[in-house]
Design a protein around this nucleic acid. Structure first.
Lengths: 390, 390
DNA sequence: GATACTTTGTAAATTGATTAAACTAACAAA
DNA sequence: TTTGTTAGTTTAATCAATTTACAAAGTATC
């Protein structure tokens, strides 16, 4: 939201700047913040005093002298409040409670048939209620709930369409906020994963990051600078439905030859079942075969890596991110996928966009989604005010 | 650049807000600006006074009363300075001089073999020198030069790589700034076209716009909100090198089955030359054939529209823009391309992202590039300070 | 141990842009 | 002529940051 400049905005900006420093460079001192931000020592002192009185910052005693008076060290009080993050899958709900630093306090996974809206919402409410009860007493209590969903949502937290759940037009944010009176954010699962990787993974310095979530289909979350790119109406990131074969197999989305028909976990399993003539084969089994160095399994993964690479080349050429993260359960197959994938990327992508790029498999694993959901909730709580001058 | 909040920033923000209003809603009055922006009448008065004394705004007399005292109408003084926009093609240079509203004062197109760096730079300097001489006397003179290039550049205005020119690592911005002592911006041709369409075309309200420039290859410029998306290192937008056929024809970029091998002007002409068995056939001739309703030409365009559609589906699914503009010389073929293109888009793209989308052919034609280049130069001059509160 | 110098943090006075409220100016409608 | 509305200015108050000064608490050096 664009707005005019007044003293309140000024203070909000500077308070955010100070808060960010303390959150991310804790412990630090008033003098050091003043030095790094360009604010005067007096301003920093006054803002820090307010942050202390609102329990977001604590003094933890004197630090080492740098040749003069010892600094009073300031710490971010990450226990001033707690956040809840949810991953709403098709047949289970994963939920975590974290402190304001994203450190997990409590977690749970329950099975639930989420294709039924009523069942799912009851289960969701139960999970959230449980975590709220477990939250330690704190100044601000549970400050927000973030929910990652396998589908599209708008800025008001309505689920517009979630194909794998069969949901359409469900005002989930409103329902949960009415129940708990806590701010709720609804966001696509891949978008949430992107935020999680950016904030808690190994990509915190990345300027632009694409998170590729591989499951039944392929979803992608795009982060530009510190912001999630949501497209014009919240439908961005369906890179799984980029056609890599314009007259290939028909996809249920209406297109032909979509990437996810070749490179999703589902596609791999289908192929593996055909090769092994075993209609019940699942990913875990296939991983075991690969670990045992079975030729057929290794070949399947090698081919799958190639398909992954083909789509990743499209991402590189079109968006030129400096970091691509492969997430979802298929990230477990990294050892057997990575070589052929990288080979395709190196052979096919434009050299300049590739030059500063790093491709990694998720280190957060299944935690990326729930952590990202918490992170979004926490960010909303701090609602950091930033000014960019072009 | 992120920065702290102080009184100077506050004023800069508000002055920009007032200036933007006057630029885009001219003529208007102090009272109306106050009403629409939320600033007080006193603040607006004070800022307008400064803008008037710096010659960017003029009073042009009283307007119509709305039931009380007549308002004093304020006009953006678009002749306070002038901007130069350049389109650096492979074999010609198009350049224009505009006022601060982007209205063209003077224009020229000269042929020049730009594959030779020295020749090209001399020709560029000559063009710019000519236009500077033609600029009317004004308070700020020529306030900036924008150059659209068929290649990649970094934020410092170095041309990193321009395949069709054969240029690599040329510090064009530095060279031109040293010569003319005027701020210079270097930007990819498709990016510049996107800015031109957004600012001067029929897409000024679009929240996110993708401009598809079809020529020898296919380039794309992506605008999110009011900002150009440049990727991590300035290499974004090479959607022409998204593969639509993963084991298709090899492209000189190293990839297989790139979209531009099927849907560029070059691809169309190659195909047409084969069909007509005429190795000298060009686009103008083919357009004439189509106008004369020749079956072979009509079929060629119909097929080409399908290929265009296939790539556009990829753009829709991955980025969910609310506006796509097809530009470049091939936009002239709209009447014979559009039906088959739209048919493919409607059949293949995801229904939700498609719902609020509008696809149009460029109305600015070849002017999009030079106008966009001017627009970027003008934006830099106003260096508008925008505040986003998240 | 005394002195000089540094660094940390607070206090008081100053600055400057916005706001709020009051006011002048100008006009329409009855 | 009166009443009410709109346009724009003036004046005083506000408030967050800055400037300047200074106190507190340390190190380094002779």
């Amino acid at each position: 939201m664009k707005q005019t400049g007044d003293l309140a905005l000024m203070k909000k900006i500077n308070k955010s700047i100070v808060m960010e420093r303390i959150r991310h460079e804790s412990p630090t001192s008033r003098a050091r913040i003043a030095e790094k931000t360009g604010l005067t020592k007096a301003t920093v002192s006054s803002l820090v005093a307010e942050l202390i009185s609102s329990d977001l910052v604590e003094e933890i005693g004197a630090g080492q002298s740098r040749g003069g008076r010892k600094p009073m060290l300031l710490l971010f009080n990450c226990s001033a409040g707690f956040a809840i993050g949810i991953d709403l899958g098709t047949d289970e709900i994963t939920s975590i409670l974290t402190d304001l630093n994203g450190r997990i306090v409590s977690e749970s996974t329950v099975r639930s048939d989420n294709t039924n809206v009523d069942t799912a919402i009851s289960a969701l409410k139960a999970c959230i209620g449980d975590l709220i009860k477990q939250a330690p007493i704190s100044r601000y209590g549970v400050i927000g709930i973030g929910v990652g969903i396998p589908g599209f949502s708008d800025e008001q937290g309505n689920i517009l369409f979630a194909p794998n759940l069969g949901w359409e037009n469900i005002g989930l944010q409103a329902i949960l906020e009415a129940e708990f009176a806590i701010p709720v954010v609804i966001e696509n699962e891949a978008n949430v994963g992107a935020v999680g990787e950016k904030r808690f993974g190994s990509s915190q310095a990345a300027a632009s990051l694409v998170y590729v979530s591989i499951g039944a289909g392929i979803g992608t979350g795009i982060m530009l600078k510190e912001e999630l790119y949501r497209g014009a109406f919240g439908y961005s990131g369906e890179m799984g439905h980029i056609s890599i074969h314009h007259d290939g197999k028909p996809c249920r989305c209406g297109n032909l030859g979509c990437w996810e028909l070749y490179a999703s976990e589902h596609a791999l399993i289908q192929e593996a079942r055909a090769v092994y003539r075993d209609p019940t084969l699942d990913l875990d089994t296939l991983l075991k075969y690969a670990q045992a160095k079975e030729t057929k399994a290794l070949q399947l993964f090698t081919q799958h890596g190639r398909y992954l690479g083909i789509g990743i080349v499209n991402i590189i050429n079109s968006l030129n991110p400096d970091r691509i993260i492969i997430g979802g359960r298929l990230a477990l197959a990294e050892p057997w996928l990575v070589a052929s994938m990288i080979e395709v990327v190196n052979k096919r992508s434009l050299p300049y966009p590739r030059a500063h790029l790093s491709i990694q498999f998720s280190t957060l694993g299944s935690k990326a989604t729930v952590l990202g959901a918490c992170s979004i909730a926490i960010s909303r709580f701090f609602s950091s005010t930033k000014v960019w001058v072009e």
